[in-house]
């Protein structure tokens, strides 16, 4: 027998489940998430990146290369949740194997409120999970192309993320890995027959973009961040961070991209 529920009932059940789950999480982590006095962490880092991209509107050949990047984050350690905003900017010159080049820039912004999943009050091992809002903008300018010389992607995704961390207290090291996978995304690209620059744009703006709401079979992205941080002094930390941002767009403008960033950063705790 199939039982049908009205939308109202379903939302009520989901709401109640969330409240119960938050209560459990709160109980488990209330003492854990804020063990010290510092609620705010400000981090700023410089990085080297390695990138590879295939935009099938321009070529099936991968373009790869290295560049520089900046990264910053603000973390708020609340009683119930850890909220983090990460910003990354990178630029690189990429080449295919025939030395055709492109200049790539990208910007990402991720916001995630994370809840503790384990009873970590007596453990150095922590698992946090929660939603993430992940935004990214990538732009590529191709050298030697006449009219269709550039393209871009902009996406905003609702993602699920999980962070696993382990503190090696005697030596003041924390190992942390955070992974996020979008489940639902809004994506903007140039429309099929367009580039971001369109030559016949004298008296009007002829550029057209396409916008889509996409699920993972159309826009698959994985954002992984591995960090080792070392407490230097009560308010100061140094971090070595490795980020991977891979995405694959299966719209009529197919794009695959990998950004690998190695970042050295400094954190100030407040």
């Amino acid at each position: 027998m199939i039982k049908y529920y009205s939308n109202k009932t379903v939302f009520l059940k989901i709401g109640l489940s969330l409240v119960c789950w938050l209560a459990v999480v709160n109980n488990a982590c209330a003492q854990t998430l804020n063990p010290d006095l510092y609620k705010w962490t400000f981090t700023l880092g410089l990085g080297l990146n390695s990138n590879s991209v295939i935009d099938k509107n321009f070529s099936q050949l991968p373009y790869s290369g290295n560049g520089l990047g900046l990264s910053g984050s603000i973390t708020y350690q609340g009683r119930l949740i850890q909220q983090q905003l990460n910003l990354t900017y990178g630029m690189a010159t990429l080449q295919n194997k025939y030395y055709n080049s492109l200049y790539a820039t990208y910007f990402t912004a991720n916001y995630s409120p994370l809840f503790c999943l384990n009873n970590a009050s007596n453990s150095a091992f922590k698992i946090l999970a929660g939603p993430q809002i992940a935004m990214q903008y990538a732009r590529r300018n191709y050298s030697g192309f006449v009219n269709n010389n550039s393209s871009f992607e902009f996406s905003t995704s609702l993602a699920t993320s999980i962070e696993i961390s382990y503190s090696i207290i005697p030596i003041g090291l924390v190992l942390k890995n955070k992974i996020a996978v979008p489940v639902f995304s809004y994506m903007q690209q140039p429309a099929f027959g367009f580039a971001t620059f369109f030559a016949n744009s004298g008296s009007q703006n002829s550029v057209k973009n396409s916008s889509d709401f996409l699920v993972p079979n159309k826009f698959y992205r994985i954002i992984n961040n591995f960090t080792i941080d070392k407490q230097l002094a009560p308010r100061h930390k140094i971090l070595l961070s490795y980020n991977l941002d891979f995405y694959k767009i299966n719209t009529i403008r197919e794009v695959k991209s990998i950004h690998n960033n190695l970042i050295v950063a400094y954190s100030y705790l407040l």
């Binding site: 390695s50 991968p62 194997k97 091992f125 696993i164 190992l175 992984n224 591995f226 991977l244 990998i258």
Partner: peptide
Amino acid sequence: NKIKTVACLLLTLFFLGGCKKTFNQP
């Protein structure tokens, strides 16, 4: 043992994440 397990888990994630640096040539 716990430390080893966690370290292995983190390292696995790290290397899984980083194993793909570029795409195959067509």
